[in-house]
Design a protein around this nucleic acid. Structure first.
Length: 232
DNA sequence: AACCAGGACGTGA
DNA sequence: TCACGTCATGGT
């Protein structure tokens, strides 16, 4: 078994199933304050849209409590919808997502995404070729590589590996990659060495984030990393 | 009370 | 291409 696959097994055993991406359950009734929950297997298009919005809102921001509150608020105001987002005034939207930070930028980004989804609906994107849909997403102002790949993997169930700052930190610390390695290069490494299974891709990325939160958020990075001991 | 979080964009060199 | 400033809330 290769190194990346072994690391996945170690992290899964250590932290257990993460069940990303958290989504608001379907039987949510308006007015209550149901937080998005982990481990949801099947999603409808509204839930997929919520994931897409969440991917934007969580840019450089903690999910809990900042983004979680914003998602709850969007649901409360019945704004998880393409037309709703396009219709709502900027000030109202920015206010609704205030807790996620960068609310002015992110309000615009949500509108950009909604505008895009009118031309390329979720159903159409899901049928489209992976790299073609990725290119389209990257053309949206406000969607970079990580957000695009999060959308492709978690909202559209496509088989692509998400790279983030944590991934770089951990695997550079292990000597697997160079710290300055480009996004696409790191992504290729993972995708060349792992089975192309979206469930594994989802879970692996979530486990990386969990591991990084514990050992790679404050310096010195990777001080008590069990992975270092495992491969010393 | 600084520091950081599941980034991306605009700018100037 | 690439380094650098900017965007902003909430928890530690």
């Amino acid at each position: 078994m290769n190194l990346l696959k072994r690391i996945y097994s170690i992290l899964l055993k250590e932290y257990g199933f993460q069940g990303w991406w958290p989504v608001t359950p379907v039987n949510y009734c308006s007015g209550s304050e149901t937080a998005p929950i982990y481990g949801i297997a099947t999603k409808n298009d509204k839930q997929r849209l919520e994931i897409i919005f969440g991917a934007v809102l969580t840019q450089n921001t903690q999910w809990k409590p900042n983004v979680e509150r914003a998602i709850i608020e969007l649901n409360r105001l019945n704004l998880i919808g393409i037309n709703q987002i396009l219709k709502v005034k900027h000030e109202i939207l920015a206010q609704a997502i205030k807790s996620s930070g960068y609310f002015n930028q992110k309000a615009k980004k949500l509108k950009n995404v909604a505008e895009f989804l009118k031309k390329y609906p979720i159903k159409k994107l899901r049928k489209m070729d992976l790299w073609e849909s990725r290119k389209l997403l990257l053309n949206i102002n406000g969607i970079g590589p990580e957000t695009a790949d999060s959308i492709l993997l978690y909202a559209l169930d496509k088989q692509i590996f998400v790279i983030d700052a944590y991934t770089r930190r951990i695997f550079a610390n292990l000597g697997v990659i160079k710290p300055e390695a480009a996004y696409d290069e790191v992504q290729k490494l993972f995708m060349d060495n792992l089975e192309h299974n979206h469930r594994i891709f989802k879970e692996y990325h979530a486990l990386i984030v969990e591991h990084a939160k514990r050992h790679y958020s404050k310096k010195p990075y990777g001080k008590n990393d069990l992975l270092l001991k495992a491969f010393a």
